[in-house]
Amino acid sequence: MSFETKNIRENISLKGSTKIVVEFFEFALNSILFQRAIYPPEDFKMVKKYGLNVLVTIDDSLKSYLKKLLTQVEVWINAGKISKLILAIMNVENREILERWQFDIQIIDEENKENKGPGGGKKQRTDQEIKNEIQAIIRQITASVTFLPVLEDECTFNILAFTDKDAEVPAEWDDSDPLIIQNPEYVRLRSFSTKNHKVDAIVSYRLGFYDDPKR
C-alpha cells in the first residue's frame, strides 16, 4: 500500500467516525432537552434510532440552532481540534448553572496503540458494537431523570466547546468561562468508541436538594 492510499483510507474512516460522533451528539442533546423538560414535550416526536425510540425536536428554530451548532462541531472533530462538548443547563432568571452534561472526545491514536494501556489497542469494532454502546448511553440519559434533581424553575441551556488554541473559530462562538457548578455531584455515564474516537459522558449537578438535616 502506497503512503497516499493509506492516507486516503484513514481520511475516509475519520470522516465516517466523525459522522457517528456528531450523530450521537444530535440524539444525545435532543434526549437531554426532552428528558430535562427544557422544551415542552409536545415539541418532540419519536423516531427509531440505535434500536430505541428516541425523541427529537420538531421545533424549527431549535432544529436550526442544533444544526448550526453541530455543523461546527463536526468541522472541529474532523480537524481533531475539539476535546469537550458541554451542555450546561441554567436557570433563566439568575443564570445559575444547575446541570452540566459533559462529553469528552478523545482521538484514538492508531500509530501508538501498542504503547498504551489495555484500553488503547482495541480490535476493529463492528457497527453493531458501536450501536450497542451508543444505545447504552442514550438509555442512561433517559434513566438519569430518576436521580437528577427536579428542575423547578424555567431553564435554558448553553453549549460550550473546549477546543485547541489554534482551532478556527467562527463568529458564533465566543470565549467563555467553563460554567462549572460549585460543589457538584458527578455521575459518569458509559462511553463509546469508534475506530478513531472515544466519547465519554459525565453529568454533574448541583448538590443540596437531598440534604435532610434530620438524617
Binding site: 441551556f157 460550550l160 473546549f162 462562538w173 465566543d174
Partner: peptide
C-alpha cells in the same frame, strides 16, 4: 485550550 461558548441564544 480555548473554552468557547455558542453565543446564539437557544430558542
Amino acid at each position: 485550550k480555548r473554552i468557547l461558548a455558542f453565543n446564539l441564544q437557544p430558542p
